[in-house]
């Protein structure tokens, strides 16, 4: 974990309101794992006050580069979306716990919903690099919100949209439910809570392991403030920043 001043290398729009930011990530900052995140200060001063967390979407150690996929949502992300290459970035990372590699003999199924696509893309690339085949399912409301240029190439890539404007009509969870019940699936997911909850129900029913990357508001990002509490079914909370963001999805209270 380091705080570094670095720079934006490039920015491109990848879907409606979605941008891919490519930034300098020096090797001295430590190699991020899929599922880990950084926090970024949009600009100095009091507004927006807090750093914003973003999951790594890729890391290229040879080029000292990393990417993030961001969605314009509020003042901080709007400010980010207007940055130009060369802009200085105040970053803190890599933070949190990433995805653990699937056990041998399981079939990894990677599920991304909406802006959750970044860390799932990174996991896919990490598995590819390790020679582990995986299935990749992306769900979105409509075709305009699908970052098609970022989708992995190769077999086992499936897109679902709520309105059927791209890929099969339906949700990402529908695609997971359609998998054979007796398959030895290991689920990995990041996306909106309804999708995460639906995957939890499927995982529980079929006894599939489920690694879930959660998203919460954060203040410190390093485990100190207890602000990013994720409620657990058994009572109590996990910290999204330090215990997660990748948690055992079957322990999280999603609803």
């Amino acid at each position: 974990m380091v705080r570094i001043d670095t720079e934006l290398l490039s920015k491109r729009r990848v879907a409606e309101g979605y941008f891919e930011l490519r930034l300098r990530w020096p090797s001295g900052a430590g190699a991020p794992a899929a599922g880990q995140f950084l926090t970024l200060r949009a600009r100095g001063g009091g507004d927006p006050l807090l750093r914003r967390p973003f999951a790594f979407a890729s890391h290229d150690a040879a080029e000292d580069e990393a990417t993030l996929v961001i969605q314009e949502r509020g003042s901080a992300t709007r400010a980010l979306a207007t940055l130009e290459p060369g802009a200085k970035l105040d970053l803190l990372g890599p933070l949190g716990r990433g995805f653990a590699f699937p056990e041998r003999g399981t079939e990894p199924v990677l599920v991304a919903g909406g802006i959750g696509v970044g860390p799932v893309l990174f996991l896919r690339a990490s598995l590819d690099a390790a020679g582990v085949a995986s299935r990749f399912i992306l769900g979105a409301r409509t075709a305009a919100l699908v970052p098609e240029s970022l989708l992995p190439r190769g077999a086992g890539v499936e897109v679902r949209t709520d309105d059927g404007s791209l890929g099969t009509r339906g949700t990402a969870a529908d695609a997971v439910a359609a998998l054979p019940r007796d398959a030895r699936v290991a689920l990995f997911a990041c996306g909106p809570k309804p999708m995460m909850a639906a995957l939890d129900r499927i995982a529980a029913e079929r006894g599939w392991p489920y690694q879930a990357a959660v998203e919460e508001w954060m203040a410190c990002g390093v485990g100190a403030c207890m602000g990013c509490a994720v409620p657990l079914k058994g009572g109590g909370y996990s910290r999204a920043c330090a215990d997660g963001p990748v948690l055992d999805g079957r322990l999280v209270k999603w609803d």
């Binding site: 009091g46 927006p48 006050l49 403030c225 909370y237």
Partner: peptide, 20 residues
């Protein structure tokens, strides 16, 4: 103490609210 239910944080103009 496990703390309060989530969400516990909200950003406000030049400030933030917490209910940890």
């Amino acid at each position: 103490r496990a703390g309060n239910p989530a969400p516990r944080l909200a950003e406000t103009p030049c400030g933030m609210l917490n209910s940890i």
